[in-house]
Design a protein around this nucleic acid. Structure first.
Length: 362
DNA sequence: AATCCGGGGGA
DNA sequence: TCCCCAGGATT
């Protein structure tokens, strides 16, 4: 084992001493760092999954205003919880928050489990979140491995490639020997802050890095190519949706409870197949979903938004069905006529939300 | 180990 | 336009 892989022989006392001191002087003042309340820390950890700090900060405050404690979250209806999550993506996170809150209230007397194993049994608590809450709130000496820590340690240890479960396990073993016993929560946050502020994905600040002297990637000039970039390209696709009006109301339908954007609401429509025009695609979707023939269409708006690996151009049309509105024959999915003003009560994916906003600004 | 699951912001 | 983000669950 080379020197950098053995935290016991760490000549400059980089782990944990220098990292903790670096953190104490350079850390950002983030709202969730002002508390050890497991409820608040938990909310922040879930929101921060695959979501940037700048996006989370306002949403964190709004969430705590709506659900100040575990009990208020557990008692809230799921639709309201999903509405509160609107725009954050990965909506399973909101469902798991709601479920876990109910479980903690019901099975744990409203107290969070205080160790990693107990926490890991709750929905939405994976290895990262369980260790984060256990270390930050309950001072358990368990390291976390997420995107920042993975990048920092792959560079420090000179591990090439994209990383994966095996690399994470190796990093975790290293950090189990390096973590501060006295302030494991601060140590974990220090590692993440190191990755966020200094050991950034692109243009890392190597010259001001506390670990430069021990960094194998820096020694080899490989800091820009570790970790290796993912090579997944976004696929473009076109979609059409119909705004069906009935007086002041419009028709929306609920997506299935599983899969993409589960349980959210949207306007009827769907993907444009190869060879179709927008109009023929809309006619086909309205026939499939609502049993409607299409009498006339008028362009309403075009918006773009990103799905997981799709970049969608969403064409909305104001549509009049053949046979009038009484001809609507819904399929399996719940359908509602909702006053434009009341669309605020329903959770929509971001693309559909843009259409909602345009309707409400008319 | 590979995929699915969103959306926003920065470069 | 492309890349990445305080991951979890499923297969």
């Amino acid at each position: 084992m080379n020197r950098a892989e053995n935290p016991k022989s760490d000549p400059g006392n980089l782990f944990p001493g220098r990292i903790l001191r670096w953190y104490a002087s350079r850390k950002r003042d983030l709202p969730w760092r002002r508390t050890k309340d497991p409820y608040r820390v938990w909310i922040s950890e879930i929101m921060l999954q695959q979501t940037t700090v700048g996006v989370v900060i306002p949403r964190y405050h709004e969430w705590l205003a709506a659900y100040p404690d575990l009990d208020s979250l557990a008692k809230a209806p799921l639709r309201k919880v999903l509405k509160s999550w609107e725009g954050l993506g990965y909506y399973q996170r909101a469902r798991n928050l709601h479920r876990a809150a109910g479980l903690i209230v019901r099975d744990c007397g409203g107290r969070f489990p205080r160790d990693t194993e107990g926490l890991a049994g709750l929905p939405g608590f994976g290895s990262y979140t369980a260790s984060a809450v256990a270390s930050i709130c309950f001072s358990r000496p368990v390291p976390v491995v997420e995107a920042n820590v993975r990048r920092v340690m792959m560079r420090m240890l000179g591990i090439q490639g994209r990383g994966g479960p095996a690399v994470d396990a190796r990093i975790r073993r290293f950090l189990e020997g390096a973590i501060s016993r006295r302030s494991p929560g601060n140590f974990n946050q220090a590692m993440m802050e190191w990755g966020a502020l200094v050991c950034r994905p692109k243009n890392p600040f190597c010259l001001r890095c506390p670990g430069r002297a021990l960094c194998r990637a820096y020694a080899r000039g490989e800091q820009e190519v570790i970790p290796a970039p993912k090579t997944l390209r976004a696929e473009r696709l076109q979609a059409v949706v119909a705004v069906l009006r009935n007086g002041g109301r419009v028709l929306i339908q609920k997506r299935p409870e599983k899969g993409l954007l589960a349980g959210l609401w949207e306007f009827p429509g769907g993907k444009v197949e190869p060879g179709e025009t927008l109009r023929t695609a809309l006619a086909r979707e309205l026939k499939e979903e609502l049993g409607l023939g299409l009498a006339s269409v008028r362009p309403f708006a075009t918006v773009r938004h990103a799905y997981t690996r799709y970049l969608v151009t969403l064409h909305a049309f104001e549509a009049k069905p053949a046979g009038g509105l009484n001809a609507v024959r819904p399929g399996n999915r719940p359908v509602r006529w909702v006053a434009v003003k009341s669309l605020d009560r329903y959770p929509f994916p971001s693309g559909s939300l843009q259409i909602v906003r345009l309707l409400q600004s008319e």
